[in-house]
Design a protein around this nucleic acid. Structure first.
Lengths: 152, 152
DNA sequence: CGTGAAATATGTATCGT
DNA sequence: ACGATACATATTTCACG
């Protein structure tokens, strides 16, 4: 993966709707050479997928929560079951396993408080594996980006 | 925004590289009708942008931090300056303004601990507005999705 | 990696409901 | 106002140099 690949990736991180022609021009390649690289980057898994980012406010999913989860005990099997449950829950946008007093941090998106209450009952408390959790209610998501710093 | 728009959005949330033809077929519209809707959804800002999601591990940006920030005092101007600083920092992927004992939660992506130390010095501590912060080091990001639950 | 031609997709105009 | 069909334009894709 060379400088050209990194430039391609950085462009696509910002705008994946670019045509291959326009992308090729920006990075200084012919369309065919550029396409070959993009395909290789997709197949190798560096480009995981291409997605549309929607405005949460326009869709009634504008309530974001940061949830700090502490497990009942430190146990691999318990952790695996928990992460699988989070994987299956559509409200859970992100799940980080962290070090320290807390075991997991979740980013959860819901329409309203009732939906969040249901989430707590049906997903968080459903496994007898969560000892306690603390919810930080987000009044405002002031930044949301998916662009990783590639250092180029 | 009707059921058809929601189906279009949910498809594009999952895969924005779908051709308009394939998308039209999936939602049961003619290509031209589908394209009109997609264009409208883009122009109205419901579709904010289309981006490539990259594998952080493949790019040496695999260290994720959850940072809880407490400000020196509750002050609108201070908050605005802080959010602007976070907006400008490429390491800050997300910034949530939250209620409770903590004022902000950040999701930060860096290559290594040295980069994170530099970030703390040059960005977090640079404004004399942060009273204290707590870093939760992520050992593993077990889920990362951008797909909002649209309830369809 | 680049060129050029065939295959495909996008975008537009027009008509019908 | 919205969707379908058909046509013109643009893009993708592949064989070859």
């Amino acid at each position: 993966m060379d400088r050209l690949d990194l430039r391609i990736l950085d462009q696509l991180q910002q705008d994946a709707s670019l045509t291959n022609q326009a992308l090729a021009e920006r990075v200084g390649l012919s369309p065919s050479a550029c396409l070959k690289r993009v395909r290789r980057l997709r197949e190798s898994g560096v480009i995981q997928r291409e997605v549309a980012i929607l405005a949460p406010e326009a869709l009634g999913a504008s309530l974001h929560m940061v949830v700090e989860v502490t497990m009942v005990r430190d146990d691999r099997t318990l952790y695996r079951r928990f992460t699988q449950r989070m994987e299956a829950a559509p409200e859970v946008m992100q799940c980080y396993q962290v070090t320290g007093e807390v075991d997991f941090v979740l980013i959860v998106s819901v329409a309203d408080m009732e939906s969040y209450d249901r989430f707590c009952d049906n997903v968080l408390d459903a496994g007898q594996d969560v000892h306690k959790f603390r919810t930080l209610i987000s009044r405002k998501r002031t930044k949301f980006q998916t662009r990783l710093p590639l250092g180029i």
